[in-house]
Amino acid sequence: MYEFDWSSIPGAIPLLLKGMLITLEISAVAIVVGIAWGTVLAVARISGVGILSKLAALYVNLFRSVPLIMVILWFYLITPELIRAIFGAGIGDIRLASALVAFALFEAAYYSEIIRAGIQSVPRGQMSAGLALGFTPGQTMRRIILPQAFRNMVPLLLTQAIILFQDTSLVYVIGLSDFFGTAYKVGDRDGRLVELLLFAGLVYFVICFTASRIVKRLQARYAID
């Protein structure tokens, strides 16, 4: 029978917290940029402007067809070249920068689909009503449609955020020390991989399970209105 030894975890807490900070940083940037850029893509897609909606559709379908791991590797490949092209010389560790870009652009594709569905869930009459009051199409979208759409899709946006939080662990492939990467390295260093991996799983579970419970409760409350 395997003998567990959890003693290397307490000492590693500061390191693990530092890793969790990176996990949260990537998640936060991907959520904020993803929703903003995703909204632009969604609006472009349903704008009815041929070329714009085609480009948006291409972007979304491309990112949704490729594994996140490939996207992370792609940006890890491209970002240094871009930075060199812009700043002339290479600068420090670009792993975090490339991960931030990859996650933000990748998640935008997923967010844009949620947002598009949310916008389309608002009755068409609302657009007519806005236009009839003398708003421009842009104003109607911003002041009338989007506020209602976002209300409808809050639970889905949050659920996507939980998925995204889990997916950040994939930065392991470019050797970034997020929470999971740190847990793995500590386990490897101390020869206690079993304990560290189980501990990491438990931490993710507690965070994600709690968050999904909160989302469910929010959903129930929104449903009553």
């Binding site: 889990q166 997916d167 662990s169 994939l170 392991y172 999971f180 793995y184 991989l193 079993v194 991996l197 189980l198 990491a200 799983g201 993710y204 579970f205 994600c208 399970f209 999904s212």
Partner: peptide, 14 residues
């Protein structure tokens, strides 16, 4: 509620 990568490592290493 556990990331895919963590699950994979648990199956493979644990």
């Amino acid at each position: 509620n556990i990331p895919l990568l963590v699950q994979l490592f648990i199956w493979y290493f644990v």
